[in-house]
Design a protein around this nucleic acid. Structure first.
Lengths: 262, 262
DNA sequence: GAGTGGTCTAGACCACTGT
DNA sequence: CAGTGGTCTAGACCACTCC
């Protein structure tokens, strides 16, 4: 009485969970599954689509259907913020050695490819609300992308927004060719006298949009982590708003909360 | 030359993004879309499946396809940990008033339905590693579920693991009927002399499993946030490991990181 | 070229929703 | 009952991978 495609999906799911089909293994060809279950090909394909949506299998055109392997994770911690703050007042030489992403991933600068694009915009409603300034406020939108040199797709998409008036004191901050800036955003802000006091990060998860699937090279059956990071300075002003999109199957974020002692 | 179903999906996606089809609106019937595009019904359905996987539309059997409405969010902050710690030494009366979830959501105790189930188990490899004790260590597994009284599906699934030996001093802690425990886990640990020093939370995102879709009543085209929360006491021992599954379309987590002043 | 998955068609019949 | 989406079939033809 159960739907045929669900029964087939359940069957295969169980084989995978029991370890009879292991990560990387090829599933039987769709035609042979159709024979085996005495069902039509489209029905079998529907069952496989369910498993694909769950992230259990991966379809490879012309090769077969494969049990998906877990991805190597990119770590991202909230201790990077304090680390970056400590660096912000260090010498240029120290700052040039590694950035926050290398700190998280344990990689060298050379392993990563970083691109930046700057653009001046006016705050829309959403940004105005996040920053706490009126709509239309002049902002600098900075689009960042980071990827492993060895891989073709970036592992994060970041758009950061600074208030133009706050950073007017240092024209270098408007120059995208100065990226990657040694010491990162906290050092950039430091050059115009801004000290970051706290960072608030909002996290949600959702399926990727078509564009994100394209740009992050995400297969169907994955999710993205969406992070909005707001930095406040010591006067409680919002000094940076960043929207970060991270592939869920490659990212693990760690947040440490230290509690006051009794 | 683009694939037909992608072209149809792009078309409809654009209508939705442009606001010509607004949240809650019904899309044209599948048969009428097939007529309109002069394509077969299965092709149209394939296009709609793409939009469903992106979380843009919702299929309702016998009614139609609808533009998905954004869900009401459940908030969860990391400041709840300090808040809960402060409460842990308060009077029973104070502790009974509200819990951390109510603190996050701003709701009253009566608005929420809470269920708990306890079970003694042996640590498997994953848990042993998380806790830093040998495999086979006796643990108390506590399964929690929280939902709005008005809704049928819970908005989180939590499994928490305590080391039995650590909590042996208070037999009430083995009694699931004492849940919801006023003051929560931090008070429970306090009764056996344990002070939580810090909480480390690891966050990833993935599509829901079949079981999670069932239990959290998730439609296709949503993701789950998976949170592993590890509590350390002042002696650096792991005193609680909790696995929390949260529906991505209903949850927003906020983490605040305070930085040392210059 | 053999094997595999991807796209698309045409149509039958079932199940659910609303009037 | 009419209208809608859900399941399933049978088969044609295309596109990719690998030998």
């Amino acid at each position: 009485m159960a739907k045929v495609y669900e029964r087939i999906a359940d069957d295969l799911r169980q084989l995978i969970r029991a370890g009879e089909l292991r990560p990387g293994d090829r599933l039987p060809a769709e035609t042979s599954l159709a024979d085996q279950y005495k069902k039509s090909l489209p029905t079998v394909r529907q069952a496989l689509a369910v498993l694909q949506a769950e992230g259990l299998i991966e379809k490879q055109h012309g090769r077969g259907n494969f049990v998906r392997r877990p991805r190597k994770l990119v770590e991202r911690t909230n201790e990077r913020h304090q680390w970056e703050k400590d660096r912000a007042r260090e010498s240029l030489q120290t700052r040039s050695q590694t950035g926050a992403t290398e700190h998280d991933t344990g990689l060298q600068l050379d392993d990563l490819v970083f691109t930046a694009k700057y653009k001046e915009i006016k705050a829309d409603e959403r940004l105005a609300k996040a920053i706490g300034l009126p709509e239309g406020t002049a902002l600098l939108e900075r689009t960042f992308r980071t990827r492993y040199r060895a891989e073709s797709a970036p592992f994060n998409l970041t758009r950061s927004y600074l208030v133009l008036e706050m950073i007017a004191g240092n024209s270098d901050l408007l120059d995208e060719t100065k990226e990657p800036w040694p010491g990162g955003t906290q050092n950039q802000l430091h050059t115009v006298g801004i000290e970051v006091d706290r960072v608030v990060e909002r996290v949600t998860a959702r399926p990727p949009t078509a564009e994100e699937m394209e740009e992050l090279d995400l297969p169907p059956g994955t999710a993205v982590l969406v992070l909005q990071k707001i930095s406040y300075d010591t006067n409680d002003r919002v000094v940076d708003v960043a929207d970060v999109t991270l592939p869920g199957d490659r990212t693990e974020m760690t947040f440490t909360t230290r509690l006051e002692r009794w």
